[in-house]
Every structure is written in C-alpha cells, then in structure tokens.
C-alpha cells in the first residue's frame, strides 16, 4: 500500500500544482487581487452580508418551525379534512424548486398588490418551502413518542389540545432539535438563492466586491470559505446534539417500555444525564 499511497500523493500534488500554475499564469495569484480581502472595511462588508444571510435563514427557520408544527398536528389530526389539507400542503411544497417559489413571490405577488420587502420575500419562500420538510420531521418526532405518553395524559383528564401542548409537542420538539439544527444548514445554503432576487446576502456582496476590485474569483472564494465555515460549525453542533440525545435516552428518559423502569421514567430527568 505504501507504493499506492506515494503514487496517489504524487498525483494529487501534481493536480494541485497544475491548478496553481494555471492560476498564476492567468495572474490570479497576484497580491493586489487578494489584498482587498484583508482590508477591515471589506471584511466588514462580507461579515455584514453573512449577517443578512443568517438573519434571513433564522427568520425562515422560525417561520418553517411554526408552520411545520401546525402541519404535523394537522397530519395527525382526527379530522379527515385537516389531514388531507396538511398532506396536500406537504406534497405541494416539496414538488417544485425553491427558486421557482422565490421568483413567484418576487415577481408574481406584486400583481396582487402584495409587495414584500426583499428580506421578507426570501424569508417567506424559505418558510413555506421548509415547512413541508419540518412538518414531516415533526410528524416522525410525534410518532416516535410512546403512545403511553398521550394515553397517560388522557387518563389524568387532559383534553386533546392540552395533551398536545403540554405532553406531546414539548417532547417531540426536544427530540427533533438535532434534525432542526441540521436542517438549518440547508436553510443557510438556500438563503444564497436570495442573490437572484437581489437580496443583499453574502453571495451578492461577494459579487459586488468582485466587481469593485476586479477580483471576482477571489471574492467568490472568500464567500465559499465563509459558507463552508458556518456550515461546518452548524453540522458539528448538530452531531454533538444528536450524540448527547442518544446518550440521554439510553440513560432512561422518555422511552417507556414496561417493567420497573417505568417509575424512573415519570420522574424529572436528572441534570447529570443532560451532558456537558
């Protein structure tokens, strides 16, 4: 294997070397193309773009979580019409590209006298589109809860809505936190589509900076690096939450399977199992 490793290392180095040489030949490694990216004012411009990206993704997530909860409850409703409506909503918003929805909100809605600010156009598109995804995630979360939870709530006299609000949804939401965080990576990436309707997020600012300094390639590489950094952090957080959660449930949390552990399961969770 040592021979193969050495050969592969040489081949990879050759590819990188060739790429760097053609970049150098095109003058793309010249210092004056890269130096604007170290200017504090330019950096602030990029960070401002990243902030706009995070704001749109965050607001879109809040909208999507809210709509997703409503959809999940609707899909599990006892009323057939509600189930059908929520199911149709989920199928509809999963069927076509986010870009199409975004273009419709930006160019089609004004015909109806609805002219959203750019930020809200992006937020609305992200919320609607991801509500379908999150609705399915929540539904899985609610279904993964033991039936005994709802049955016990009914047995102590809670009604349908109280059971949902006090017993089922809080537990389902907590279980879904890792999935929500990893969906946030998707949302953050999708925010870049705001570029095409002129929302001034990270990608648009990168293109603007590239036009100003004549360093499109360098500015866009900067944008890509910032996105990768943000998403790597988020993915890492999601993975950690997932591991922590798995540990918590193994330690005997919500899962009620019968036997003497049942008594433990209804007690509040000890703080020590929530991890550090």
């Amino acid at each position: 294997m040592a021979v193969a490793s050495a050969a592969a290392a040489v081949a990879l180095a050759a590819v990188v070397g060739l790429a760097l040489r053609s970049l150098a030949a095109a003058g793309q490694l010249d210092a004056e193309l890269w130096s604007p990216l170290t200017d504090p004012r330019v950096l602030r411009f990029f960070v401002g773009g990243a902030r706009n990206t995070v704001v749109a993704a965050g607001a879109g997530m809040v909208g999507a979580v809210t709509l997703g909860l409503v959809l999940a409850v609707g899909r599990l409703s006892r009323t057939a019409a509600l189930r059908g409506l929520a199911g149709a909503w989920v199928q509809f918003f999963r069927a076509f590209p986010l870009l199409l929805l975004l273009l419709f909100l930006a160019f089609g809605l004004p015909a109806y006298g609805i002219d959203l600010a750019l930020l809200w156009t992006v937020v609305a598109a992200l919320s609607l589109y991801n509500s379908a995804v999150l609705g399915e995630i929540f539904r899985a979360g609610i279904l993964s809860l033991d039936r005994g939870q709802a049955e016990a709530a009914y047995a102590v006299g809670l009604g349908y809505w109280s059971t949902l609000r006090l017993v089922v949804v809080p537990q389902a939401l907590r279980r879904m936190v890792p999935a929500i965080v990893s969906q946030l990576v998707t949302l953050l990436k999708d925010t870049s589509l705001g570029y095409f309707v002129l929302y001034e997020e990270l990608l648009r600012r990168g293109v603007l900076a590239g036009q100003d300094f004549g360093n499109t390639l360098q500015s866009l590489l900067m944008v890509a690096a910032m996105y990768v950094a943000m998403n790597l952090v988020l993915s890492r957080v999601a993975r950690r939450l997932e591991v922590r959660q798995r540990r918590r449930y193994r330690a005997g949390g919500i899962d009620v399977t019968g036997g003497p552990e049942d008594l433990v399961a209804v007690e509040p969770q000890p703080a020590s199992t929530s991890g550090t």
């Binding site: 953050l188 589509l193 570029y195 095409f196 990168g206 390639l217 866009l220 996105y227 998403n231």
Partner: peptide, 17 residues
C-alpha cells in the same frame, strides 16, 4: 457545505478569470 448557487456563480464568473 457550499451553497449550490455559490458554486454556480463561482464556476460561471470565476473560472473564466
């Protein structure tokens, strides 16, 4: 971890440079 839109813009505007 890089948005598809960024890849599109990077390849379309950046690579010719």
């Amino acid at each position: 971890n890089c948005p598809l839109a960024v890849l599109f813009v990077l390849f379309f505007f950046g690579l010719p440079d």
